[in-house]
Simulated scan of single mutants.
Amino acid sequence: MGSAERFNQYRVMWVMVFFDLPTETKKDTKNYRKFVEVLEKDGFSRFQFSIFLRHCPSMENAKVHIRRIKMNLPPKGHVGIIHITDKQFGMMEVFISAKKELTPQPIQQLELF
C-alpha cells in the first residue's frame, strides 16, 4: 500500500466524542475529570467544552480508540461517539464570534515501518 493510499481522505478518520456529564456532587466531578483525562491521554484534543477530537490514520486505528473510550465510560451522563472521514471533516464550517475560521488541521503523525 503506497503513501497516497494510506493517507487517502476517505481512509483517514476523525473520532469525535461529545458528552454531557453531571457535576453536581464531588463524585460526579471526579468522574468528569477522570473521563476527560482518559480522552487527553489517548490523544484527543478539546474542540469545544465537551467535544473532543482525534485524528486517526485508518478505520482500524479509530476502532481501537473507540474501544478505549467505551471501556472508560463514566457511570452517569450522556456520551456520543462518531467517526467520520477526513473528507467529511474537511467540509465542516467553523465560526467563532460570527467570523469563519479554518477547519482544524490534523497533527502530523510519524509512521514507522
Rank of each mutant, 00 (worst) to 15 (best):
A4W: 02
A4F: 06
E5H: 08
R6Y: 04
F7N: 12
F7K: 06
N8F: 03
N8S: 11
N8E: 10
Q9S: 14
Y10R: 14
Y10L: 08
R11K: 11
V12N: 04
V12G: 08
V12M: 05
M13I: 01
M13K: 04
M13A: 08
W14L: 00
V15Y: 03
V15A: 00
V15R: 02
V15W: 03
V15I: 04
V15E: 06
M16H: 10
V17P: 02
V17N: 04
V17H: 01
F18K: 10
F18G: 13
F18C: 10
F19W: 02
F19D: 03
D20R: 02
D20Q: 02
D20S: 11
L21E: 06
L21F: 01
L21S: 01
P22G: 10
P22H: 12
T23K: 14
E24I: 08
E24T: 13
E24P: 06
T25Q: 11
K27L: 07
K27T: 03
K27F: 04
D28N: 10
T29S: 15
T29Q: 15
K30Q: 13
K30A: 13
K30V: 11
N31G: 06
N31R: 08
N31V: 10
N31D: 09
Y32F: 06
Y32S: 03
Y32Q: 01
K34L: 12
F35V: 00
V38E: 02
V38K: 03
V38W: 06
L39P: 04
L39S: 02
E40T: 15
E40M: 15
D42M: 09
D42K: 03
D42Y: 07
D42N: 13
G43Y: 00
G43I: 05
G43E: 01
F44V: 05
F44D: 05
S45Q: 14
S45K: 14
R46H: 06
F47S: 11
F47P: 07
F47K: 03
Q48T: 12
Q48R: 08
F49C: 13
F49R: 14
F49Q: 14
F49S: 15
I51D: 07
F52S: 06
L53W: 08
L53C: 08
L53D: 10
L53K: 02
R54C: 04
R54Y: 04
H55V: 09
C56E: 03
P57H: 01
S58M: 00
M59S: 14
E60C: 09
E60V: 12
E60D: 14
E60W: 10
E60R: 05
N61F: 14
N61P: 12
N61D: 15
N61V: 15
K63S: 12
K63F: 13
V64P: 10
H65A: 04
H65P: 11
R67I: 10
R68Q: 09
R68N: 12
I69P: 05
K70Y: 14
K70I: 15
M71S: 12
N72D: 05
N72S: 02
N72L: 06
L73K: 01
